[in-house]
Amino acid sequence: MKRRGLFLLVLLVLLCVPGFLWQPHQAATVRANYRSYLDPIILVPGSSATQNRFNALVKELNHETPKTHSLLRVEVMTDGTLKYSGTLQSGDEHPFIVIGFQNHHDGYRNILKQAQWFATAFKQLQATYHFNHFSAMGHSNGGLILTLFLEDDLAATHAHADRLMTIATPFNLEEADPDVDTPLFKRLESGRKRLPHELVVYSIAGSKTYTGDGIVPFDSVNRGKYLFQDQVKAFTQITVTGANANHADLPENQQIVGLICQDILP
């Protein structure tokens, strides 16, 4: 009778051995696999739009989802300070955070500056709310800002980008000629190797005419494949037509709201 008990004890100890041997590496493993409870969805509006751009969209999304998510709006001033409005409820796992800019004008130089401001805002939000993973959606130039951030500044924040959706994002600006590369596209292309490999990307194009959504040429949106394809985990291109398919109306387009619910919200 003693022998059986002893056998069980020895077996128990034997099974514990791998655990004891592995324990010194445990902290590193836990840290590498750690994902914060907070997993925000960051929304970035396009040029000429403010941090209030997505109020209607968020309302619509909250209507579609079983759980209501809070909305925090951040305006980044030209001196890098942040102005908050809205709330981030405690216990909300997936709040929406809209990041807009005081200087929200168009233009290559300005977009680079906005990407810098975005990085500043992201780091401050991260320091305040302690999240280490997120998903993002950018409309028009907002998608450019997010892509620039993912290429240039994400690594330094040690955050993990899970999903990205760009809506009518002109990766080659307003250039309709497929043979001409704008400086912005060259810049994005040179940094594509730094895009996170775990990221899932959806690029949505609106099609009002056969060549574009009225403002952004279809070819410019289509350039996204030269950045993301074979670089991120998955890259999907979607073209939306029908009512509300012109550039400015896209975020409220019912099909796109459906796509956000399906692909970006967890």
């Binding site: 128990l12 099974l15 514990c16 655990g19 324990q23 010194p24 445990q26 902290a27 836990v30 696999n33």
Partner: peptide, 18 residues
Amino acid sequence: PLATGTPGPLLAYLGTGG
């Protein structure tokens, strides 16, 4: 986080980081 299938008495040891 606790790994599934950890021998019972080891759960606490690994869960507290040793």
